[in-house]
Amino acid sequence: MKDLGEIPPEAPMGGMPKPVLLMSAGSLCDARYKWFQALGRYLDAPVWVLELPHLGVKEGLMEGAYDQAIRFMVEELREFVGFLEKLLGKKMDWDKLEDISNDIIDMNRIWYETNELRKARPCPMHSRDFWTCMTGCLYPAGDLKALKKMYQDLYDEVKYRVENKIAACPNEKYRLVFAELPPWHSLKFFDRLAERGWSFVVESWAYHPPKPIDLSQVKDPLERIAKFTYQWFAGYFEESEKQGEQMGYFGYPYLEYARDWQCDGALLHPLLSCRTATNHLMYVQDRLIQKSNVPSLVASGDIVDLTLFDPEDTLRRAEAFEETMDHYKEVRKKEGLGW
């Protein structure tokens, strides 16, 4: 774009307009803010890095740590509002922010409850539908009222399917958890596994909505946003700490998923070019088998270099993995794990 001096004419959907701001966060992955900083080579848009603390499990639970984290986030958000007002030359519409933040929080609650319904046997909604629907909550844009209605309709549909025992995957034989980023380029792969009776009932923690908390008494919309966001990050910490697990996010949620969604196995998808989606997966594999007797199949790939994912080989390995899942089903039964 910089070389041409304009958006490339052949760009899909007319291309992405030149941004006035690049906003990133110092959370989850380094690439988020380093990439935008590096984009300075091509764009003269300012970069704002929003802070989001993510303490280790124990430190996040120290006395006063939560309140301090929220204070920090609120201060950061206030700085950001000041910056936006300067950049855009207009004042924040606080009523609108109030409305938007409430819609987002509510939308996430509905989406959370929808995913809770997937605990049912047979599972009413497959991972493929999850990946199609998660963007509205994760990257809320456009008409939020319409989006919220879409999530409510989705909830109603999934509930109907639960009540009528309509399975997302006919002949659900194996229930699985998937982590982390799916092979976007090969989503059909999931259909082929579904033909074998593999039902992906829950998936990647970072793409799931936070466990709902009551924020109705929080008056300041910035504080509400801060608490909502922190909950997304730290909502599993307390339980994780009780279980003696040291990775309260990225790691521990999979133990909870495996138990509550009654998974027979996990499909882990390390990516060569994404550290965030990868660096905890061996840990997850180990914790799942050690603590829950849930085995994992590791299928490496990438979402940049498509040649790294081999669906045919993974399908061949999947066949053998079924025996492993059968074996551990027996082990769990003997140990009284409940599924």
């Binding site: 803010y33 802070e51 124990k58 920090f72 201060e75």
Partner: peptide
């Protein structure tokens, strides 16, 4: 074992944090 969550910016609130 202690884990220190170093902020990612040098914003004033980050320094205080």
């Amino acid at each position: 074992f202690h884990f220190i969550d170093i902020p990612h910016t040098i914003h004033k609130p980050a320094q205080n944090q």
